[in-house]
Nucleic acid binder design. Structure first.
Lengths: 138, 138
DNA sequence: TATTGTTATACTCTATAACTATA
DNA sequence: TATAGTTATAGAGTATAACAATA
């Protein structure tokens, strides 16, 4: 059976990204959050009083799509908002959210360690530069 | 603004894969097919009389999800099916499908060239091995 | 029984458009 | 006018369950 895609970097890139995303999702499952939610909580934890729009820009999530995610995180008691200028909301983690963010941080680090470990040692220093180079604006 | 994800290989991997997938999608748009459809047509072109189930295994698409894709490709006159053993169908490209598959092939190759070109020259030989290493079974 | 094709369904992510509220 | 948040909607990809047909 001829499967040309196994030699195509574009296909291999997608396959690697999907498999690692699924792996991280499985690791986060016991914490009750999905990868996107965990990323948002991490960003708020590191940037107190960040706004929804800023999160969207940093994670490449559109405002319209971020809205239901944020509402869910607020409803579950991980995030609280205070009024900023204009319609802007200042977001921060609740105590509950901070505890969760710490557990998420551990899972994120474990995942990055697994990914680095999968790369041959002599190429590890090149991994991040190579992945940055593979990104395109378009 | 602290964006830790720009140093996380997992995030960079997903970002690179998404951007390249979008780029390829844009290049295929004039041909009137999406990336998934183009991949299926390529596989049928290279493996005459392949079955749906085999395509699914090679591209990691489940049978249930492949069904509407295949029906659409048949309805548009790119693919025809003949009866195989059991419920198996032998798939092959129509004349129309073969012409399209040739154009797709050119776009696929152009995309792979672009991706290779984005990688620093001294790392190009390591790209495919590295991407293969980044894949995980999970 | 195992495999293939099929249908239905649901969830996630993504994309667009349009609306409001405020600087 | 520009930005932030909101709502509705649609498409694409993915997941599970269940069913029919055939080896």
């Amino acid at each position: 059976m001829d499967n040309p895609f196994l030699n195509y970097p574009g296909y291999l890139l997608r396959r690697a990204a999907n498999s690692r995303l699924a792996q991280l999702g499985t690791c986060l499952e016991p914490l009750g959050v999905r990868v996107t939610e965990a990323s948002i909580l991490t960003l708020i934890g590191r940037n107190q009083d960040i706004s929804q729009a800023e999160i969207g820009r940093l994670l490449s999530i559109q405002r319209a799509n971020l809205n239901p995610l944020m509402r869910s995180l607020r409803d579950r008691g991980f995030v609280e908002a205070s009024q900023g200028p204009g319609r802007t909301q200042h977001l921060r983690l609740t105590e509950h959210g901070r505890e969760l963010a710490m557990q998420i941080q551990r899972e994120f680090e474990a995942q990055e360690d697994r990914i680095f470990a999968a790369v041959p040692e002599h190429l590890r220093a090149e991994l991040v530069p190579m992945l940055r180079a593979l990104h395109c604006e378009e």
